[in-house]
Measured scan of single mutants.
Amino acid sequence: QIFVKTLTGKTITLEVEPSDTIENVKAKIQDKEGIPPDQQRLIFAGKQLEDGRTLSDYNIQKESTLHLVL
């Protein structure tokens, strides 16, 4: 699982696999929060994550925290 922290300070927990794409993660966030993926920007280690890449591409491991910017 990974954590996604929103600007409001809320933390969302997501069940993911390293092979999941960023697009996939955004879809999971939409399921939980109702935020359309095209409004979501995910930041990890100061980098904006691209939809077509996977979590493992960015070396995002379990218990990692991503930041969600709208």
Rank of each mutant, 00 (worst) to 15 (best):
V16K: 01
G52C: 11
K26P: 00
D38V: 09
Q39K: 12
T11L: 13
H67C: 15
I12H: 03
G9N: 06
L7D: 12
E63H: 13
T6S: 06
G52Y: 11
V16P: 01
K32A: 12
Q48S: 10
E17F: 12
T21L: 10
K26R: 05
S56A: 14
D51K: 04
K28M: 14
V4D: 01
G52P: 07
E33G: 05
I22L: 05
L55T: 03
A27D: 07
E33W: 14
D38G: 11
R53D: 05
E63T: 07
L14E: 00
L66V: 09
L70Q: 09
E33H: 08
T21Y: 08
K62D: 13
G9V: 02
L70D: 10
I22N: 01
D57C: 04
T6L: 15
K5T: 13
G46P: 01
K26F: 03
P37K: 15
I2R: 01
E50I: 08
V69L: 13
G46L: 03
K47A: 10
R41F: 14
S56M: 13
S19M: 11
G9S: 04
S19A: 09
L68V: 05
Y58I: 03
P36T: 06
L14N: 00
E50D: 09
R53I: 06
K10L: 11
V69I: 13
R41V: 15
A45D: 12
P18C: 10
K62L: 13
N24H: 14
Q30R: 13
Q1P: 09
K10T: 08
E23I: 12
L42Y: 03
F3E: 03
Q48R: 08
E17L: 11
R41K: 10
V4N: 01
E17G: 08
S64I: 05
Q30K: 11
G46R: 04
S64T: 08
V4M: 02
I60Y: 02
E15Y: 13
D51H: 06
E15W: 15
K28Y: 07
Y58N: 02
S64G: 06
G46K: 04
Q40N: 03
E63C: 15
T21V: 05
S56N: 09
I12G: 01
G34E: 04
D51M: 05
I60K: 01
I2F: 04
V25P: 00
V69T: 09
T6Q: 07
K26G: 01
T54H: 06
K32R: 10
D31C: 14
T65C: 09
I43C: 15
T8N: 12
Y58V: 02
E50Y: 07
L55V: 08
S19E: 12
S19C: 12
H67A: 07
Q30W: 15
L66R: 01
V4T: 01
H67M: 13
K32T: 08
V25R: 00
D57N: 05
F3W: 06
G9T: 03
L70W: 10
Y58R: 01
V4C: 04
K5D: 04
Q40E: 02
R53L: 12
T54L: 09
F44T: 02
S64Q: 09
I43V: 10
S56K: 13
D20G: 03
G9P: 02
F44S: 03
G34D: 05
K62M: 15
D57F: 15
I35R: 02
V4G: 01
K26C: 02
N59P: 03
D38M: 10
I22Q: 02
L66N: 01
I60L: 04
V69N: 06
V4H: 01
L7R: 10
T21E: 03
E50V: 08
F3Y: 14
K5I: 15
D38K: 12
Q40Y: 14
T54I: 06
G46I: 02
E15R: 07
T54N: 05
L42E: 00
D57S: 14
S64N: 08
E63Y: 15
V16M: 08
L14H: 00
I35S: 04
I12Q: 02
K10D: 07
P37E: 07
T54P: 05
A27C: 11
L7Q: 14
I22V: 10
L49G: 01
Q61H: 11
R53A: 08
V16R: 02
S56D: 09
L42S: 00
Q39W: 10
P36G: 06
P37D: 04
L49V: 04
